[in-house]
């Protein structure tokens, strides 16, 4: 592993983004728009907006970065640039870390914007520290990015890659506890949700919103971090120097 190569990858991904201002505008604008709709829909002081707002804010970057990374990585695989890189000293971890850094930076901007809007203008309240919401959101972005990179190995086309978003992300959002508390779920759904990383990401955000930073919160954060490590390992396993 080399920091120089990792930074070269991160810089390159950021440059690719810079040439695509529409993607940046969408990545930054859509969460703000959805947050505004949510507030207008339920009303500023409604318990629904207050309850759902913070977790949603923290989960947006997961969805965005999952999509953006899986498409970028798929292009890398199909355009032959990955094949070229595999003949160079670039280590798999350099590539993964470079992607992670670039998309985490994008996520930082995204989260700061939507937080400023939600906490500043829309009246969203959190009992816990606001910086923790931002930090958790960025961790979710890295998780989304690494998972997106992993699933891109199973897509041959961009159509397929886009379909992985609802397939991998929606079930996690449905089962994470946001819509139905996990205690009220059918047993088999609760068992499944225990194996999904977003369940812990959601729980950590919900606890931050209520300022319940207890042992369970620490466990949630640990599971999210472990999921990132696992996704990196899975992603690295799909990056083969030799292919058919």
């Amino acid at each position: 592993m080399s920091t120089q190569v990792t930074l070269a990858v991160a810089l390159r991904v950021l440059r690719q983004l810079r040439h695509d201002p529409r993607t940046i505008a969408l990545a930054l604008g859509v969460p703000c728009m959805l947050m505004l709709i949510l507030q207008q829909l339920f009303g500023r002081s409604s318990p629904v907006f207050q309850q759902v707002g913070t977790p949603l804010l923290g989960l947006f970057p997961f969805v965005t970065m999952f999509l953006v990374t899986s498409i970028t990585m798929l292009r890398e695989r199909t355009s032959g640039t990955l094949e070229r890189l595999m003949t160079t000293p670039l280590h798999k971890v350099d590539l993964l870390a470079g992607y992670g850094i670039a998309f985490a930076l994008l996520a930082v901007v995204q989260v700061i914007l939507v937080s400023a809007l939600a906490f500043g203008l829309l009246g969203l309240e959190v009992a816990g520290p606001k910086w923790l919401v931002v930090a958790l959101a960025v961790a979710n972005a890295v998780l989304g990015s690494t998972l997106g990179l992993f699933v891109s190995a199973f897509a041959q086309t961009e159509f397929q890659a886009v379909q992985f978003m609802p397939a991998v992300v929606f079930p996690q959002i449905l089962l994470c506890g946001l819509f139905v508390a996990r205690e009220e779920m059918a047993d088999w759904l609760r068992v499944i949700s225990a194996f999904l990383p977003l369940t812990y990401a959601y729980d950590a955000l919900a606890r931050t919103a209520d300022d319940r930073l207890d042992a369970r919160f620490a466990f949630d954060v640990a599971v999210v971090c472990a999921s990132i490590v696992l996704a990196v390992a899975l992603g690295a396993a799909t990056l083969r120097r030799r292919t058919e």
Partner: peptide, 21 residues
């Protein structure tokens, strides 16, 4: 098939691959 990044400039491509090497 040309294996370079279509969304980067010529120089940005080469700076990247040069950086890797």
């Amino acid at each position: 098939a040309p294996s370079v990044y279509g969304d980067l400039t010529v120089r940005e491509n080469l700076v990247f691959f040069g950086g890797v090497l």
